[in-house]
């Protein structure tokens, strides 16, 4: 990967880190907001090999945990699980398409949020079962809808290796 691609990835990472607490605070129907970091990791793992995807998930997970400043390991563990689930679900694909990627993002986010909810419950977060289920399903649907909208760009950036202006790296 070239330096420009690394920089693009860093910008996307920063956006995924701060947008849920700022921009998406105002775009949260029923209090549900997307988990952009999960979308980023899922999309990367769909068009990458296991080891680089796991490495990215680990690094972004650790940085996200440190940035949030509590419950270290929650994001790191969850994102690594999401990579393994995404790659497992992707196996056997002959070709990819908008519907398939959207479905996969839904399934992987659902599993990822489920893992998060389970870890959170074990750590003593005070959430009722109903609210937890609403959160897991809501975030999965929100993530899937977002990917449905941004699919052409996701495909270009992660699969064809092109950035915003179509430059090949």
């Amino acid at each position: 990967m070239s330096i420009v691609r690394y920089l693009s990835m860093a910008v996307i990472f920063i956006f995924c880190l701060i947008a849920p607490g700022t921009v998406f605070y105002y775009l949260s129907p029923w209090g549900i907001r997307p988990d952009l970091m999960m979308i980023f990791i899922i999309c990367f793992s769909l068009y990458s090999r296991v080891r680089p995807a796991l490495a990215l998930a680990f690094v972004t997970g650790v940085l996200t945990d440190l940035y949030i400043g509590s419950n270290l390991g929650l994001y790191t563990f969850t994102l690594c699980c999401v990579v393994l689930v995404s790659i497992r679900l992707q196996k056997g694909w002959e070709k990819e398409g908008r519907a398939l990627v959207t479905g996969l993002v839904f399934a992987a986010t659902f599993v990822g949020q489920g893992v998060m909810a389970l870890l959170a419950a074990l750590s003593g977060f005070g959430w009722s079962l109903g609210e937890g289920v609403k959160m897991v399903c809501g975030v999965a649907v929100y993530n899937a809808l977002l990917v449905l909208l941004i699919y052409p760009w996701v495909r270009r950036f992660f699969w064809e290796g092109r950035g915003w202006k179509g430059t090949r790296y």
Binding site: S70, N71, L72, G73, S123
Partner: peptide, 18 residues
């Protein structure tokens, strides 16, 4: 992971320069 989460639970101060 579980132990780490418990040790750094909300409201528990810890060394976090990063």
């Amino acid at each position: 992971t579980f132990a780490m989460m418990r040790l750094t639970n909300m409201g528990t101060p810890f060394f976090n320069p990063v």
